[in-house]
Amino acid sequence: MTERAYNFAYLDEQTKRMIRRAILKGLAIPGYQVPFASREMPMPYGWGTGGVQVSAAVLTPDDTLKVIDQGADDTTNAVSIRSFFQRTAGVATTTATRDATVIQTRHRIPEEPLREGQILVYQVPIPEPLRFLEPRESETRKMHSLEDYGLMHVKLYEDIARHGHIATSYAYPVKVEGRYVMDPSPIPKFDNPKLGNMAAIQLFGAGREQRIYALPPYTQVVSLDFDDHPFEPSKADHPCGMCGGTDSYLDELIVDDAGGRMFVCSDTDYCEGRQAAGHKGKDAA
């Protein structure tokens, strides 16, 4: 039921138009960070206000929304964003990746390949991949415009010098269509290969930092690396304890006081789907 006190999806039409313009510009220049006038949302920053504003701007009454947080549909953050849009937009919601038309996510890309017509909206805390070594915004903007990206490899160099390998495992930087270097938000690098050539539209919203960027369908996305330290999308070397899956990203759970551990798919919908289809892991009841 829609509460009439709100405009559809909470934001007024003018604000949504402004955000849509930023999204279109982002789609036209893949990987480029478009500034936008982020609005106060009825939730704190860090709760994905950038993603929420992007979702609000793209949702239509016919959409079906899925919200995930680290792959799960049932965390406090995911539940509250889902119910926010149920209340303010009256849209249908789902936990099934394949049934959703808009998926808002924090820290994961669903395991099931997305298709044309779907939109994946990422919540982004820090959109600037160069921030780590160059805090001056004026300077990073210039570096992007001049494709002056040596610094990005300095970061990876430092990783190898310190750890013997590229230790960056989240928010692993990518180059988009051979042009812009982009932070894919804190997804595990395991998900990086899914960013490229994806059939769905990918939109990234950073609320506090007031930036939107985008990847249109079938965009080339390459993870940065060195010839002698190539990018590797790693994951825990175990099958899922619940569904037995061997090719999904796993969370490690402590299951008892004796320090017993179990590895389970981080993508809840994917895991449940496999279990429903009869797949069984060694820890399944």
Binding site: L133, G150, V154, Y157, E158, A161, R162, F226, D227, D228
Partner: peptide
Amino acid sequence: LRMGVSAGGNVGERLMAVGARNYADIR
């Protein structure tokens, strides 16, 4: 200098800026 970057990273930055992509060579 970049004070937050190792000596090797400081010297290697210009190499990487012009396209060096072999860690062992840069080092």
